[in-house]
Design a protein around this nucleic acid. Structure first.
Length: 485
RNA sequence: GGCCCCAUCGUCUAGUGGUUAGGACAGCGGGUUUUCAAUCCGCUAACAGGAGUUCGAUUCUCCUUGGGGCUACCA
């Protein structure tokens, strides 16, 4: 068997689709585990849908995900002559024909066919009713034309799909596909087949939406007299309504997930498991890219579509965040932190150290406190704003004032234990010491934590409260944070 | 409409001609938490339906139903 060569061939119509990421990943895994090559090809054969900058964006997303391609990127629009040459060859061999039908006529024809409940198909007018003379005359007059593949009649096209097994199509249900458009660009079908052949692609691994056009491609290989590659059609990624993932319903671009604070290993792991799993009773859920390369089997890919479940992705992301070395977490989380409006507001009470090194150490400590509870990088600091903000007195939170003496005493006893604080607090002294400081019954605990982080060995200044958090702040977190420090 | 593909808990899935149909996410309940989260423990929850093959089908075959994809001078 010749060396495995696969490709990911997106069209540059926007940013990298999450389904595209999975296709790319499966191709990549397959190539790597077989010692083969993974190529990147830009299928920009539709001028109308071309989006400036999307090629670069897609490359960035792939690189972010750790999917590296071999060789240079191949761009189809730079090889228009190749496709034209091949299309014309097919005409010479009587496998294709010129079509001069105008779009309006074709449209009307289709409408009529649909109205009478027929399958919309080209009526082969230009094949059946045009003689050589007319064709040459049209060509000489520069009439716009397309080149159509001539689909043979009464044949059965059968092939073995690696994930689906035997698939059959009757040629009579297949339309005479346009290969070359009137603007001189090839359609997907032509360009795809020609390039896969010229690039020696051995395995075509792509989304299920291509399954119905595969017989056309097989016919093309036949028409050219070429060997065809193996095919593997991947199940579709579905939204919660079990429809093909679409922009309407949710975020579908990898970029969105990057910006939302998912880390690459989590997204790769998640997307790999949508339509594949190691089987054999394995209950392992966490796989690194390297492990995936080892374990992945194209034959184990499922046939049915898989719903993209964000909740599971969140959980997975949390797992990966928990296991991140603190320096790595710092590197990944800092950009998200720097976007926060609560971050680095200069003021005398801002606890963030001024020196770069100290600042970094401080943030890393905060991250240690946060790491276990973080599901998403973008949530960084959100529930720990007091690490970065002024400590202010929020009178609305001065709950302790309403506490009964014995309640307060109990609370303080516990606090004292936690803090090794031997002062004899009373309602009076507390008020005096912290003035409005204690705030919530939890407030008195936040200050020491900050003291621990910043190293400021002082009591809360009068008039300040070591408390800026919402009601959901947790003493447990503080305790465990203190333990860590 | 035509063609093609698919079908195990809500979701991702494991699994076998004979299993208490397993795991994970989510949900629910509880332990730990002076509140959240995290964590630990537990619970709820599935073989779409109907025939056939078979001693026995969730598993094999067929049909039905349901879902999805394609049906462009888009990819």
């Amino acid at each position: 068997m010749s060396k495995v060569k696969v490709r990911f061939a997106p069209s540059p119509t926007g940013s990298l689709h999450i389904g595209g990421l999975r296709s790319a990943l499966y191709n990549y895994l397959f190539a790597k585990q077989n010692g083969g090559e993974f190529l990147l090809r830009v299928e920009d054969t539709d001028k109308n849908r071309y989006v400036e900058g999307s090629v670069e964006k897609m490359q960035e997303s792939l690189k972010w995900a750790g999917i590296e391609w071999d060789e240079n990127i191949y761009t189809q629009s730079e090889h228009l002559d190749v496709y034209k040459k091949h299309a014309e060859q097919l005409i010479k061999d009587d496998k294709a024909y010129y079509c001069f039908c105008e779009p309006e006529r074709l449209q009307k024809m289709r409408e009529d066919q649909t109205a009478t409940k027929q399958a919309p198909m080209y009526d082969q007018y230009c094949l059946k009713s045009l003689d050589k003379e007319e064709i040459n005359k049209n060509l000489k007059n520069n009439c716009p034309y397309t080149i159509r593949l001539r689909i043979p009649e009464n044949e059965t096209i059968e092939f073995d799909d690696i994930v689906r097994g035997k698939v059959k199509f009757e040629t009579n249900t297949i339309d005479d596909q346009i290969l070359l458009k009137s603007d001189g660009y090839p359609t997907y079908h032509l360009a795809n087949v020609v390039d896969d052949h010229l690039m020696n692609v051995t395995h075509v691994i792509r989304g299920e939406e291509w399954l119905p056009s595969t017989p056309k491609h097989i016919l093309l290989y036949k028409a050219f007299g070429w060997d065809r590659p193996e095919f593997a059609h991947l199940p579709l990624l579905l939204d919660t309504n079990r429809k093909k993932l679409s922009k309407r319903e949710m975020d579908v671009s990898v970029e969105d997930y990057i910006n939302k604070g998912y880390i690459k290993d989590a997204l790769i792991n998640f997307v790999a498991f949508l339509g594949w799993n190691p089987g054999k009773g394995s209950t392992k859920e966490i796989f690194s890219l390297e492990e995936l390369i080892k374990e992945f089997k194209l034959e184990n890919v499922h046939k049915g579509g898989a719903v993209f479940d964000v909740q599971k992705l969140d959980w997975l992301n949390g797992q990966y965040i928990k296991n991140l070395p603190i320096d790595e977490l710092y590197k990944l989380a800092l950009p998200f932190l720097e976007q926060k409006e609560f971050y680095e507001k200069p003021s005398p009470q801002n606890p963030l150290p001024k020196g770069e090194g100290d600042k970094k150490e401080y943030i890393k400590k905060v991250l240690t406190v946060e790491q276990d509870r973080l599901n998403n990088l973008s949530a960084i600091g959100e529930s720990n704003k007091f690490f970065f903000q002024d400590i202010k007195c929020d009178k609305k939170l001065l709950k302790w004032k309403d506490m009964k003496d014995d309640e307060l005493k109990e609370s303080l006893e516990k606090s004292k234990k936690v803090l090794n604080d031997n002062k004899n607090w009373t309602k009076e002294s507390l008020e005096k010491e912290l003035l409005e400081a204690a705030g919530d019954k939890r407030g008195e605990l936040l200050w020491p934590l900050r003291v621990a982080l910043t190293g400021e060995k002082k009591s809360p200044p009068p008039g300040e409260v070591a408390w800026v958090l919402g009601k959901d702040e947790s003493i447990k977190r503080i305790n465990s944070a203190l333990e860590k420090l």
